[in-house]
Amino acid sequence: MPEIPTGKGAGRRTDRDLKVRVKTARKRKLSSTLWLERQLNDPYVARARAEGYKSRAAFKLIELNEKYKLLRKGMRVVDLGAAPGGWSQVAAGVTGSTDEHPLIVGIDYLEMDPIPGVILLQKDFTEDDAPQMLIDALGGHRPDLVMSDMASPTTGHRATDHLRIMHLVEIAADFAIQVLNPGGAFIAKVFQGGTEHQLLHDLKRNFNSTFHAKPPSSRSNSAEAYLVAKGFKGRQEE
């Protein structure tokens, strides 16, 4: 008969005891094992699954929206780097977008499963014809929010990764400045380490306010942060 634990703390299991450990399989790299272990122990992954979101990233937009009031009923939204679709899901729910009257357009070079109320384009946003395709998908209307969770594959070299993601942010910001409705907003993923001076200058010239934010659902050991610009003034020339 197994021994019954007694004494102080008997029968209780700590968070450390409950943490899932994943053994390294013969054909699985250590980095893959650590990623899987992190996923299995991530409360936001569990919440996303329980609440029907495509990914844990949905909570980043939810938290940013709670703080900065970026989304509202009836607004049009462009989602750059949309896969797997968590941000588009959140935006569709808040704006009231439907399949009959879609207000959200998402774009990614990766294939995505359909999302109610969202037009999805499988396309690399950096291609020359992508911006016009997005506007056409919105029926020629200008968006009220451009959001970008785009990121390039990381190299492990922080300076290189920073340059790569800043290139994507600059392309996204230029698109936002070209197409947003007056009063509109822009959100983009960046890496901590500072937004490039010229980009920040352009955003401050074209928007009433700019912020850097790291939502609670962004992993504490991640270098990612988000750049938020609100109150688009209409494109301002130098």
Rank of each mutant, 00 (worst) to 15 (best):
Q122S: 07
D129A: 13
T95H: 08
Y109N: 13
I62T: 03
R28I: 03
L18W: 11
R21S: 09
D161M: 09
D17W: 11
L138M: 01
A83F: 02
V90C: 01
G117S: 10
A130S: 07
K73G: 06
F59E: 00
K123I: 06
L110E: 15
G52P: 15
T95D: 12
G52W: 13
A137R: 05
A25L: 05
A48W: 00
K60I: 05
D144T: 05
M75V: 15
T155C: 07
D17T: 13
E100M: 10
W87P: 02
R21C: 10
P116C: 13
R38I: 01
M150K: 06
A92V: 07
K67Y: 06
L138T: 00
S148I: 05
V146C: 02
T154S: 13
L18H: 10
E100V: 11
G106W: 09
L134C: 03
K123Y: 15
A48C: 07
G86W: 01
D99P: 06
L71G: 10
S32C: 03
L40F: 12
P102D: 12
V118G: 12
L134F: 07
L103Q: 09
R47D: 00
R49Q: 15
A91H: 06
E100Q: 14
P153M: 09
K67S: 09
T33Y: 00
V105N: 04
P114A: 10
G139Q: 03
Y53Q: 00
L34H: 01
G81F: 10
T126S: 11
A130G: 08
R72H: 10
G85H: 01
G139T: 05
H162N: 12
D124V: 13
V77H: 08
E37N: 06
G117Q: 12
L71K: 09
S32Q: 14
I119K: 15
A159T: 12
A92M: 05
R16S: 11
R56W: 00
W35F: 01
V90Y: 01
R142E: 04
D79Y: 04
V22E: 07
Q132H: 04
R28K: 14
A137F: 04
V90M: 02
K73N: 08
L70C: 08
E127R: 10
I119F: 02
G96S: 12
L80N: 07
L34P: 01
H157V: 14
L30Y: 00
R76F: 14
A58S: 15
L110K: 15
Y68W: 08
V22L: 10
D42I: 14
K73Q: 11
M133K: 06
R142I: 00
A91G: 03
S97F: 03
T126E: 07
H157C: 08
A46V: 14
H101K: 12
H157M: 11
L30H: 01
A137M: 04
M75E: 07
F125T: 09
M147D: 05
P84C: 09
R142D: 04
A58P: 01
A130R: 04
D161V: 08
V118T: 14
K19Q: 15
T160Y: 06
V20M: 09
T95R: 08
E37W: 02
D144K: 03
K27G: 06
A92Q: 04
I107G: 08
T98V: 07
A48Q: 07
V94E: 00
I115R: 11
Y44A: 05
A50S: 14
Q132I: 05
W87E: 00
D129S: 05
